[in-house]
Structures are given as structure tokens and as C-alpha cells.
Design a protein around this nucleic acid. Sequence first.
RNA 1: GUCCCCGUAGCUCAGUGGAUAGAGCAACCGCCUCCUAAGCGGUAGGUCGCAGGUUCAACUCCCGCCGGGGACACCA
Length: 554
Amino acid sequence: MSSHSDLLAAQIQAAISRAIERGDLIGTVPESIPLERPKNRDHGDYASSIALQLAKPAGKNPRDVAQMLKADLESLAEVSAVNIAGPGFINITLNRASQADLVRTILTAQESYGRGTALAGVKINLEFISANPTGPLHLGHTRWAAVGDALGRVLTAAGADVTREFYINDRGNQMDLFGQSVQAAALGQPIPEDGYKGEYIADLAIEVLAQNPAITALADEMRLIEFREAAYQLQLKDQQRVLDTFNTHFDVWFSERSLHDGGSVEHGVEKLRLQGHVFEVDGATWLRTTDFGDDKDRVLVKANGDLTYFSSDTAYYINKRERGFDICIYMLGADHHGYIHRLKATAACAGDNPEYNIDVLIGQLVKIMEGGEEVKLSKRAGTIITLEELVEKVGVDAARYTLIRYPVDTPMVMDIDILKRNTNENPVYYVQYAHARIAAVLRNAAELKIPAGLENFDPAQLSHDRENELLGSLAEFPRIVAGAAELREPHRIARYLEELAGVYHGFYADCRVLPMGDEPVLAIHSARINLCAATLQVLKNGLDLLGVSAPERM
RNA sequence: GUCCCCGUAGCUCAGUGGAUAGAGCAACCGCCUCCUAAGCGGUAGGUCGCAGGUUCAACUCCCGCCGGGGACACCA
């Protein structure tokens, strides 16, 4: 699907090429042409700073360079005016009818409008949340649940083949403590000092006993294992159920145990050894990650023969690559930022390109406010907020939207009271309201039997400034999706939707869509109905990328 | 000590090297006898932490400092 920006960029490249042939310019044709939507409407529909870049190497005045390219742009049927402004910006105004043809593009493409091919053929493993199955998912996991899921949708829209993966940390001390805690609760014994003390432990104990009343009669060792395994399965199922209600779905639930049972860890160490980065000191086996920018080397196998967590991590990475993933994305909490260097170094040690094959996103903390005060989160005090509680308080849409709306590398504050409000303070409603509002207009249009449908669409009717502005915003959507995928920043979708909703509301205030009273039905009404339908489609496509509903009525 | 993130309007925050730095809230002033007022329009509010550098152009990139938050293991 060729857009106006692609067309203009191609034409500018052709113009530069001709100017070089004429001898007016020296140098080569740039591979990419800067084209942006100017913030100021007076600067046209598109603006390019290409002349400013070309001027210096060519030894020319930027305005003169712009002048050389002007005629070629003006010759395009889609372009109505080209102006040279300021130091040498080329401001391009599109022919209104040609721009309005975008409505046809959107209504034909429907849910595929916005999709692209930038990541076509790329297999991506997207790992997020990856909680221990030893308790409910809490606020920290919730940010990843929302952002990770949205990122998965965005990457898919960019053409990638995405697998969403949840790494279950089902091995090690924490699991044993978890099992001991549930058993103690079931037997009425005190919970171990370092054990898990939340109320859910008692609930799990009751459930395990109900499932298997004979468990208490088992020998000590066997009984503990049974408690641990039964509670693990129950807790995992609970996490899966909660994520399901949160509209977050995984393709693969990857058990850490399966790595060990399948010999993948040994295989991973062996593979790294073959690459020549493994060495032995003091009886332990190390990976020389300092070869690739880590600040210290890492132990794979302890002197006592135990495998470290790091060995699991490296084995897991190698396992992912052997499953055919080109890019492994890790979404980790701020406390894991030290992992970036060692994961990248691991990739390098395995012979991969750490700049391409591995991508680590670090998320900052979420603070939560309620009743004007910060809610202090403490596992000990039992004041952790779970994903489920958050959803009960504010609903799936508000929770997801708010968590996705901010870049993950900045700390964010969630104000529960605001999220319960149905006002402008709560951006999700602003966007959803625009969708519902359009849906209402379209319902009314159908009732009035106004000819809608593309066969009644005359793009030349759309000449109002508000219509032009709305068309401009709609045209941006594919670029926004591509940018969000490339930069792994789904919040760009949310910000864009807020802008689009605002532009629509402005259009709605100034441009009457349906005929007033006894007014005759004109071509402008049909044209605006189609414009509304196109806007509805883009809002819906955008909300879908965030996993937020697009209500027909509010 | 080393490393990561942050510092933009009174508050919460956007801003991929471009023109006059934006939004919502809070403050003030307007707009519903006709399509959803959960909306729209306007006023006011800024040394983009400080100081250098790169560039035709810096909130944006680089260096240094100040301030805030977080992380360092043969733990898991």
C-alpha cells in the first residue's frame, strides 16, 4: 500500500537524482528522505528538511537547493502547493481530494489498515512476566502483562511471527519454601521463617487437602513433594486464569525444570565451551562474559557441582535460538538491569549478534495512589496489590490502557481514584468515547437511510480544515504502528489514539455529519459518513493493538 | 566504587536532530430549544536541572557536574 509520504519521498529522490545529472548538485541520492507532519498547520501537510542536509556538502544555499526540487514536486497530481520556508524547509500541501482518497484505502483495508511488513519473516520470541509460580501476580507483573501483550500485538501488526512466552521459575529454593509453607499451613504448623506468609497460602492448603485428603498420611519426604507439586499446579492455573481475564495470552508456558530434565543446560554449557569462552577456576566453571562488555565473568557451574541460575539463563537463551527465533525480547523489572550486559554477553559468547538477536527491555516501578496517598507495597505487611485486585477496582480496559500509556523505562504513578472516574482525566474514556460517538452517528445515518458506502463517496467534498486535519491524522497510523514496533514502544499507539480522538472531537464540533432537520441529503453528508467510518476503523484497529475494547455505546 | 533509569508548566506526564516545546488535571472565561457535553473553544502558566561540546539546526547526540530513584553474589 503506497502512502503519500512514500510517494513524496520517491519523488524527492528522483528530483535529487535529476539535479545531480544536470550538475546542479554534487553527491549521491540519500536512501531515506526526512518527511514529517508539521505540527503547525501553516507548514503544509508534509515538510522535508532534505534541502538543509544537502546544502552543505553541495556548497549551496539550502533555499536554492529546495528551489531545485520544487518543480518536480509540483508536477505530482497529488500535490497542490509547494512552499519554501524558513532556512530551507520544503512545505508540501496535498491536493484535498487526493488526500481524501485515504478514506477509500482505510475502508477497503479495514482491520488490516495500519499493518506493515517491516518485520515480515522475522521470528520473535517475546518473553514477559515470567513470575515464580509461588503466589499471585502482583502490580509489578501487571505492567508487563499489559505492555508485553500489547507489544506482541504491535510486532505482529508489523509482520513479525511472534511467540509470547512465559518462563516458569519452577525450580530451586523458592519452590521448596513454597511447598513447605503450604504444608505447614495445612498441618497447622508455623510457617518457616523465610517462607511465604500471604493469606493465599492457607487457601492453597485447603484446596490441596480437598483434592487429596490422603496426603497427610504420606511419609514426610513424599508428603512435602506432593504439597509442593499440588500447590504449584494450583497457583500456576490461578495465574493463567487471571491473565486470561486480563486479555493477555501466551503461546508457550516454558518450565525451567524442562530445561534441566531435557539436558539443555549441559547442552548450553557445551555449546559455549565450543565457542571458546568457558574456563575453570577454583573448581567452578565460568563463562568469560567480560570478553563482551560484562563487568565480571559469571559462574555456570559452582565448585560443588550445582548449576547456577545464570546457567539456566544461558541455556534458555540458546534453547530459544535453537527453536528458530531470530530475535529474543526479554521484558524485565528494574531490579534486573544488571542482566542486560550478561545476557548480551551470553549471546555474543554463543556466536550471535547481541545487537540484533537479543533485546532487553527494562521496566521501572509502578507506584500506586489511592485516597490521595501512596499505597506502600510490602510483601511482609501483606499489602501487595494483585493484578486481580487492580482489575476489580478499575476494570480491564482502564488498567491496561493506563499501564500501556507510558514508556516502560520511566516510573509511573497509577491513581486508582482517577481510573475509577469517567472523565477526561482518564484517557481511556476519551478514546473510547470517540469510538462510541462515531458508532452513534453511523447508527443514526443508517436509520435516516443516508447513502453511505464507498460507491457514494466523493473525496472532493472533504475540503474543510477539520476534515483535512482528520485525514492527516488517519494517514499517520501506519507510520505510528511501524515506529512502535521498531522501538518496542506500544505507548506510541496510545498517545496517537488520544491525538486522533481529539482531532475527531474537533471535527465533530465544527462539521455537522448528518443533515439537520428537513435539510436535503447531499453528497457532503455521504462523504462525511465515510470519513467517520474510516476514523472508527482506525480507532478500533488502534485499541485492538492495545487489547482494549472499542465500545459501540457508552 | 561500578553500572542502569530519571530531572520538561503548580500536579501527572508526552516529545525518533528541525520551524513559535505540547496534552490532561488544577485556575479563569465561554459553548448543548439538532448527530453521545464522557465533548468543543479561549485565557494564563516554561532559564526543558547546571555548564561545556558536536551540528546549518540540540529538550533530543557526546563529556562533566548537581539532584532523585534503583541495582551489584559460586542468592534464588
